[in-house]
Structure formats: C-alpha cells, structure tokens
C-alpha cells in the first residue's frame, strides 16, 4: 500500500513536470510566432505630403529649393503643439534615421483639419561625392519628455539621385 502511494506520487510528479515543460514551450513558441517584425511601421494616421521644386538638385551648383508641406488630419483626435511637432529632414536613408534637419516646427492640428506651409531652403548639405542617393522626409513626431521623440507619420521624396 505504502509503495503504491509513493509510486503514484512519482507518477504525478513526473506528469506534472511534463505538463509544466510542455506548457512553457507552447507559450514560448507562441510568443515568438506572434512577435511582430522588428521595424515598427509608421502609423501615418495623419497624412503628410512634401513637394519640392525643382524636383531634383544638382550638387555642383547652389540650389534654392522651394519646399511645400501639406498636413491633413482625417482622425477624430487633435494633436496639440506642445506634444507633437514636425521636421523636414534630409538623409541618405529612412525617415527615422539620423538626418540633417532643415526645418522643425509645431502647430496644433485640430481634429478633421488640415494646413499647409511653404519655405525656401538654400541647399548646403549635399556632399560633392555624387555616388550617394539622398532623400527628403517630412515627419511628424510625438514628444516623449527627455526620450527620443516617436515618429508618427512620414512622407518621403528623392532629393538627389546619382546618374548612372
């Protein structure tokens, strides 16, 4: 009788071990199966549009570029100027990569509203090395106290493309 009790204990102990391990592994694989890809997509709830004139620049000459920005908020949320701001950035890669800031501004964006802004930029950034492709990004960010601001929306155009 005593032996049977101890055998049962062992049996239940072993079964419990298997259950715990299988459960743990099932949860583990499920989490990593469901885990979203690393690069967070930019939400783009607020629609941004950047237009430049001329459409591409020449690195040999000094360029005055007219930049036109359009912001449209189709959502039912307003974006106050204390918490959100906009940047026009030039770099050779993605909207959230480090870039040369040519304009930074804030303006409250009411729900279901839109605004436009224009400015002239004297191009002084592109290096004489003509092998690199450069982009101009119009980004909207949310401030996060002393942390890196979070990119909310973006629109991108080619600023300079090397000729083949």
């Amino acid at each position: 009788m005593k032996d049977n009790v101890s055998k049962n204990k062992i049996y239940y102990g072993v079964a419990l071990h298997w259950v715990i391990i299988l459960l743990f592994l099932a949860v583990f694989f499920l989490i990593f199966w469901k885990l979203s890809p690393p690069v967070k997509p930019i939400e783009n709830k607020v629609k941004l549009l950047i237009e430049i004139s001329p459409k591409s620049v020449d690195t040999d000459t000094s360029n005055i570029i007219a930049v036109k920005l359009k912001v449209e908020n189709p959502t039912n949320i307003s974006y106050p100027s204390e918490d959100y701001f906009y940047r026009v950035v030039v770099n050779r890669s993605y909207p959230d990569s480090p870039g040369f800031i040519i304009k930074e501004f804030s303006k409250t964006l009411e729900l279901k509203s839109r605004f436009e802004s224009e400015f002239l930029w004297k191009e002084e950034y592109l290096p004489s090395d003509k092998k690199l492709k450069f982009w101009i990004h119009f980004n909207m960010y949310k401030r996060d106290k002393n942390n890196e601001p979070k990119i909310m929306s973006a629109d991108t155009k080619v600023l300079y493309e090397p000729s083949l």
């Binding site: 885990l35 690393p38 967070k40 770099n91 050779r92 890669s93 993605y94 959230d96 990569s97 942390n147």
Partner: peptide
Amino acid sequence: NGDIMQYNRGSEAQY
C-alpha cells in the same frame, strides 16, 4: 525602450 533586441549594426537601419 520598447524595441526588442534592436541595434543599428553600424548602419542607418534598425535590425
């Protein structure tokens, strides 16, 4: 800071 095991591998993209 919320970006699980990301680094920029010395480049302009996050991996």
